[in-house]
Nucleic acid binder design. Structure first.
Lengths: 152, 152
DNA sequence: CTCGGAATGTAGCCTCGGCTACATTCTGTG
DNA sequence: CACAGAATGTAGCCGAGGCTACATTCCGAG
């Protein structure tokens, strides 16, 4: 408690942040955005591998709601980044790096969803919004979320 | 109270969501993403107009941390979308639609930041992450945030 | 009133993440 | 075992959102 009125009173209509501060905030949001797609792919591939045994481009495409060509192109990017391996017509697998990224992403996803639920967000909205939100949750924020959940 | 363990026990490694459900979630996250940039511009322009009296492309670019040419191109998009007006060398102004979007965006931004602070996120992280998160907060989630803040 | 530096605008290039259309390979069924 | 249909892969297009380089316009100091 007391955490709420740090500087609330006036700042509504005045008090822009310092220029470099603001630029860096926006910059971070932009950076977070690239990488978000790769994270989604890696997490999904990991899920598919665990639950079904194989991750085929068509399945991935259907799950993500994109054309299969788009999925294949992005899988190519995953390979370039060293997150996945795939031989033609043989399905997609994750590298060490890919697996560990997937694990981190999945953990973060769960914390975000749980936090949303804990503050009263309805289930479907929580799952849906988390898909976008999670990519912008920094380590500091994630830690705070976990702490909040722990003391609930 | 109970809100926490809706389906927590097993779902870790199995139980993917239904295909169309998942596709729609990802689709929403993608959609939210386009529009995010416009929202940032509109909010910033509104802030600059209120606090300084004018919004010049160079200021906008500096604040956002991008090259001035990028800002000018995006301002062009704002004009096409009917959110802003600008005559060459005359600064940028918002239309009715632009102002009302700015108001909504700013309100949402405040709620998101306040919620992050309320669950214990440190100030700088809250401001920084909010910049990315806010664009993925649906109305349902926003309402839940407001409710949570009200009863704190 | 002129002239130089800052602001503004234009052009052209890049990558990413979509798409469609078409080509190739695999595979299960008759 | 052949072949149709599904899965996979390739090519080429588009818009968004970055960038640099260059051209133009504005404005304030001398």
């Amino acid at each position: 408690m007391s955490v709420l009125m740090v500087d609330s009173p006036i700042r509504s209509a005045s008090a822009l942040p310092e220029e470099p501060t603001q630029a860096s905030r926006f910059g971070k949001a932009r950076t977070a955005q690239s990488g978000a797609l790769l994270e989604d792919y890696v997490e999904l591939i990991s899920d598919l591998l665990e639950s079904g045994g194989e991750a085929r481009p068509t399945d991935i495409a259907r799950r993500l709601g994109v054309a299969h060509a788009t999925a294949i192109k992005t899988i190519g990017r995953l390979k370039r980044e060293g997150l996945a391996v795939a031989k033609p017509y043989r399905g997609v697998f994750l590298t060490e790096a890919g697996e560990s990224l997937a694990a981190r992403v999945r953990a973060r996803h769960r914390v975000v969803v749980d936090l949303l639920l804990a503050v009263g967000v309805p289930f479907e909205a929580a799952e849906s919004d988390a898909e976008g939100i999670e990519h912008h949750v920094s380590d500091a924020t994630l830690a705070a979320f976990a702490r909040f959940l722990a003391r609930s």
